[in-house]
Design a protein around this nucleic acid. Structure first.
Lengths: 169, 169
DNA sequence: GCACAGTGGTTCAAGTTTTAAACAATACCT
DNA sequence: AGGTATTGTTTAAAACTTGAACCACTGTGC
């Protein structure tokens, strides 16, 4: 089958996308590194925990939420534990399991750093978009997310090498 | 100054953005890793070279184009040279300088792999967007790019730790 | 109850990448 | 010529990722 290349307009959009996303990720990482001493992934783990009931999540659920391997998460949480922002606790209902728990110190870090982070996002994006554009962005990104998720489970059959099972408190 | 948090709509869009960009970057990396044996950054270095006049670029210009440090680029090009996709040549007009040159083999790799890459991008994005949305995406990403670039040179004064100077042929 | 396949999470070793600082060679300016 | 700035690499250390192996436990079927 012959390749369907991008049209000129699509190509423009794609290059735009690449430059925007890479610049933005860099800007976010730089700021978080400076103010929180950690890269975006680690910050987003803390953020995810802060929103979870009881500020705790099963390791597997957390890995799934962040779309990373369990191994990678173990490494990350080990570091965060050293930083004192996260603590591990055994899971009462399943002795194999562990919960990652956001510590008070972790919550404090988040509260200290979040304003700067939000400001990065604001000044990079939302301060410059109309409400319609915010809607459009949401729409477009939602479409992309769905396209990739549907595509993956349907096509190659394999995604990340595991499934989940939940376990609250 | 009190933090201007994101509105509900902005928050939705932001989460949408995060999930879309991270899924997409993963999908692209996985595909390129499988088909080209290299991550996106390396591929995009080859792609950049393929578009340059004479398929060659000064190291510094290439680093600047990719927004990475020279050190990081040195590492990357060393690997690409081992792969045989890039060759280094001295710069005739500046004996300090080096050009990274895309080899025929590198060009062949690009031609072999590009269709799959484009297809990833297509099935993840453009197959699902209307022409209007493509326009919107371009517009929005352009705005973000500009916001970050303007913000950086104006504000903290410092960006990446170097400037450029060009040198054609 | 008990084997036994499956899950949850960690460990380990190897490989890859990133960073920062220091450096040699060359260019540019006065 | 002399001083300063650039180019690109080197180096050593740190950070991160991967995949396979592994242990402890769970759940199921017999």
């Amino acid at each position: 089958m012959t390749t369907r290349w991008l049209t000129a307009a699509e190509q423009r959009a794609w290059r735009s996308y690449l430059s925007a996303t890479s610049l933005l990720e860099d800007a976010i990482d730089r700021r978080l590194q400076a103010e929180a001493g950690m890269p975006h992934l680690y910050y987003s783990i803390l953020a995810k925990l802060s929103e979870a009931p009881d500020r705790r999540l099963r390791m597997t659920d957390l890995a799934e939420a962040q779309k990373i391997t369990r191994s990678r998460l173990t490494y990350a949480v080990t570091r965060l534990e050293k930083d004192g922002t996260v603590r591990r606790e055994g899971c009462p209902t399943d002795k194999r399991g562990h919960m990652a728990v956001l510590t008070d110190e972790g919550m404090a870090l988040l509260e200290r750093v979040a304003p700067g982070h939000v400001e990065t996002v604001r000044t990079a994006i939302f301060d410059h978009l109309t409400p319609e554009q915010v809607e459009q962005l949401d729409e477009i990104c939602g479409t992309i997310t769905r396209a990739i998720q549907d595509g993956n489970s349907g096509a190659s059959g394999e995604d990340l090498p595991w499934r989940r099972r939940s376990c609250s408190s």
